[in-house]
Design a binder for these strands. Sequence first.
DNA 1: ATTCCAGTGGTACACTTGTGCTAATATAAT
DNA 2: ATTATATTAGCACAAGTGTACCACTGGAAT
Lengths: 208, 208
Amino acid sequence: MRRSGLSKTRERIYTFIRKFYREHDYAPTVRDILRGCRLSSTAVVQYHLNVLEKEGRIHRDPEVFRSIRLADKPGISSVPLLGTVAAGEPIPVPTAETWTSQALEIMEVPEEITEGKQLYALKVKGFSMIDALIDDGDTVLMEPANTAEDGDMVAVWLKNEQEVTLKRFYREGETVCLRPANKLMEPIYQYPENVEIQGKVSAVLRKL
Amino acid sequence: MRRSGLSKTRERIYTFIRKFYREHDYAPTVRDILRGCRLSSTAVVQYHLNVLEKEGRIHRDPEVFRSIRLADKPGISSVPLLGTVAAGEPIPVPTAETWTSQALEIMEVPEEITEGKQLYALKVKGFSMIDALIDDGDTVLMEPANTAEDGDMVAVWLKNEQEVTLKRFYREGETVCLRPANKLMEPIYQYPENVEIQGKVSAVLRKL
DNA sequence: ATTCCAGTGGTACACTTGTGCTAATATAAT
DNA sequence: ATTATATTAGCACAAGTGTACCACTGGAAT
């Protein structure tokens, strides 16, 4: 008998449960495991399930069919809400530590929006970004960035003006053109030395 | 029978399943639902589960105990994208059949946004709603409604003008005041006979 | 040897569960 | 009123299911 090391059948059972969960999104029964692991007695399965539970690797409710749960979690992208952004304030740029340590809240967003990228969220205060069609109370999802491509919606820090605005970014010869998303309003032109890109706006979320 | 609006028992069953999942991490049986919703026949539960499955809100494997799975992953709701909305077009109002049958796409959004409510999504085409801070290409999440409270952002159909706009709704004596979200722009006043509420705007989603 | 124990096999019981069937009721449309 | 459709009700059956029980194997410690 192997005192050190893991029981082979028990590991096969455990991995089978994982596999079964991936394929069905619900737990297998004792007899599902029996067939899946080519065992010949429900008692064997029962025995190993009891051990696995005692080891804390699974949970079960007595007498409830398909009640096996793994000490495991589904992966949804959670995004830290790092603070608020208002007119005249620089946007806080997150570091590895601030990422979750000083998060006010963890927001859960679909992967569709993040596309796997590491984003952070900011709550917009005031109407200073209304020309970017961003309202008071909206949430913006930011992607950390120092540079931008033409057409990107970026958060820029204007050194002389000492303020942050959200604009679409275009290079035009020697200057930089910053266009509001709202086409009714006029673009502004700046020298590259005066603009500092703080991040790309990846999405806007408005809850009414 | 109510053709518009959702079956009450069916919604109770659906929310019970969600609640049960939150509490147990596995699906309820038909009889769990029966007891939890204080119904008196498994056939009633079976009937509504069949409808829910036809509507695409749940999935089941035949003859498998506790095989109910929600179309919504935990923390994420799926919302049918029913079409586009542009100036001069009425907003399509969904019925039970159109819910998933004619959905162009199923969008996944955080449950934080839907708050459990049954919403549908529309893609905005053109700039007709820019005074509501809604851009071309934005997605609006609509909640079906015929009435509105003061301050609600609603989609209204103006009969005389034959067009839909998104505005904030206020009653002012005999008339109805419709305010653009953009405070730079002027509100319009209408007689109640001319406005027909098509739904509440529950959220705005902009992907850049 | 003997004892101990993790692990395996086989089986049976009592209960649970999805489903099918029939009937009844309620509301809407004609 | 009549028809159609949605919903509720009661019940029975076959199969699925967790669990208890007993017997057995093989290696390790004594």
